[in-house]
Nucleic acid binder design. Structure first.
Lengths: 230, 230
DNA sequence: CGACATATTGAGGCCTTTCAATGCTGGTGG
DNA sequence: CCACCAGCATTGAAAGGCCTCAATATGTCG
C-alpha cells in the first residue's frame, strides 16, 4: 500500500520544502522560495520558455500540458498540494503550466538546486531518486495509455487522485474539467463523462459537493483499474 | 535536427563508456564493465529483481517490457548499440529485459556509478541530465500513445529508429517482431503490419534485406509522423 | 526440404470518437 | 435578489478506427 502510493505519486515523496528529504537540514533551509498566488487558469510558464524555476504546490491544482500543431492537447501531469512540477526538460520547458484552480505555489531557483547538488552528495542522491520516481510515473503512464481501456484509465485516475489527495482513500477532489481529464488519459471528454456515469450507476462512486467524489467501493474501483499497476 | 535527435534518443547521448560525457576522464575509466554475450531471446534481468547493474548495448537490440496480469504485454523501450538500459526504477526492476537479437552488452555496477555521483559533482550533473533525457522521452511517448493515430505512431517509430540507427536517415534495421512493435506502440501486430503495408504502397518505405527498411521519402514520413514532436 | 514461427491480408465487430442537443452551474450585472 | 449568460457536463445516435478472429503467405532454422 505504501509502496504503491509512492509509485503513483512521485512528487509527494518530497514534501515542502523540496529537499526536506535530502537528509540534510542545511539543504532544506537553502530553498525558501518565493510564494506565488495564482488565479484560475493563470499561466505559470509557457511551452518553450527557459527552465529557471521549479515549483511546489501549496494549495490548489496545477496542470502541465502541450498543444500539438493540429490543436490536439495533451496533459502531462496534475500537481496537487505538496507536489512538485516544472521538471519537464533539460533546457526549455516542453510543456506549459497553468493553474486549474486558484492556487498558491512556491518557486525555487533551479540554479540553486543544481549548485546544491554539486556540493551536497546526499542532495544529489536524493534528487536523483526524485527524478527517477518521475520517470517511473511516466513509464507507468505509457502502459496506461498504450494498453488499457477507457474504464480502466478512469478508474485508475480516480484511485490515483484519492491516494494523492488529502481526504483519505475514499474521498477525492476532482477540480479539473472533463476535457482536462480526457487530455490526461488520452480519451475524449464525452468518454470520460460516460465512464464516470457508468461508475456512478454501478455504485462504485458518488458525487459530493464542490467537485468531490466519494469512492463507495474502493476494492471494486481498484479491481476496475486493473489491479495495482499503473 | 540535432536537438530533435537528442530528444528522440536519450540514451545515445551517452556513448560507451557510460560516463564518457561526464566531463571527467577519470570518471570514464572507473566503469570498465564486464561484457555479456546474449542469445536471441535471452533474459537479461527479470521484472521485480533488484537493480544492481546498468547495461550498455554494444551490438544487437534489447527490449524492456512488462507483462500485465491478464497477459497484455507492454514494451517500454528498445535499446540500440550505444544506448543504455536498466534504468527502470529505484529499487527493483519494473520491467524485464531481453535480447531481441543476438547481442553483446556491457554491465556496469550501479553502486559504482552512485558512489561516483557522490564524489564527482560533474558526474552528478551529467547523470542528472541523462535521467532527465529519459524522462523527456517517456513524456513524449505518453503523447504518442495518448493522442496519435496508428499511422502516426508507426511513422514516428520508423523515423526514430532511423535517427538512432547507424545507417543514416534513410535506412534502418527492424529486427523486432510485429508483436514487439505493437506492444511498444500500443497497437496490435496486425495493425502494425497493415500500416507498414500502406507505407510501402505509398512508396514512403521499401523493404531491404535482413529486416532492413529503406526510407524512400523521408520528408513524407516525417510529415506522416506528425511534424517534429514525439 | 520440411516444420514452425512470423508476416500479411480479409471480414466482421466492438469500443471510442464525432457530431449534436439538452441540462446544469456558477458568476455577473441589472 | 434574481435573471441571464457562458462554460461545462451529460446523454444520444451514428460513424470510424482499431481489434479480433481466421486464413493464407513468407521466411527461417533445423
Amino acid at each position: 500500500m505504501q509502496t504503491a502510493m509512492v509509485t503513483r505519486n512521485p512528487a509527494q515523496a518530497f514534501p515542502f520544502p523540496v529537499f526536506a528529504k535530502a537528509g540534510s537540514a542545511l539543504v532544506a533551509e537553502r530553498f525558501l522560495g518565493r510564494p506565488l498566488r495564482l488565479a484560475r487558469g493563470a499561466e505559470i510558464y509557457a511551452e518553450g520558455s527557459p527552465i529557471e524555476t521549479l515549483f511546489e504546490v501549496v494549495s490548489g491544482t496545477v496542470r502541465t500540458r502541450r498543444l500539438l500543431p493540429d490543436g490536439r492537447r495533451c496533459i502531462a501531469s496534475f500537481a496537487l498540494p505538496g507536489e512538485v512540477f516544472g521538471l519537464d526538460g533539460t533546457g526549455r520547458h516542453r510543456f506549459s503550466a497553468e493553474a486549474v484552480t486558484e492556487a498558491v505555489v512556491i518557486a525555487f531557483a533551479r540554479k540553486d538546486i543544481e549548485d546544491c547538488i554539486g556540493r551536497e552528495p546526499r542532495a544529489a542522491h536524493s534528487w536523483q531518486a526524485f527524478t527517477l520516481r518521475h520517470l517511473e510515473a511516466a513509464q507507468d503512464r505509457c502502459i496506461l495509455l498504450g494498453r488499457r481501456s477507457a474504464a480502466e484509465r478512469v478508474a485508475s485516475f480516480l484511485a490515483d487522485l484519492a491516494d494523492r489527495g488529502q481526504h483519505g482513500p475514499h474521498l477525492l477532489d476532482l477540480p479539473m474539467s472533463r476535457y482536462d481529464i480526457a487530455d490526461y488519459l488520452g480519451l475524449t471528454a464525452e468518454t470520460v463523462s460516460r465512464t464516470l456515469s457508468a461508475l456512478r450507476r454501478r455504485r462504485l462512486i458518488a458525487d459530493g459537493a464542490n467537485h468531490q467524489i466519494h469512492i463507495l467501493d474502493r476494492d471494486a474501483l481498484d479491481e476496475q483499474a486493473g489491479e495495482g499497476d499503473a
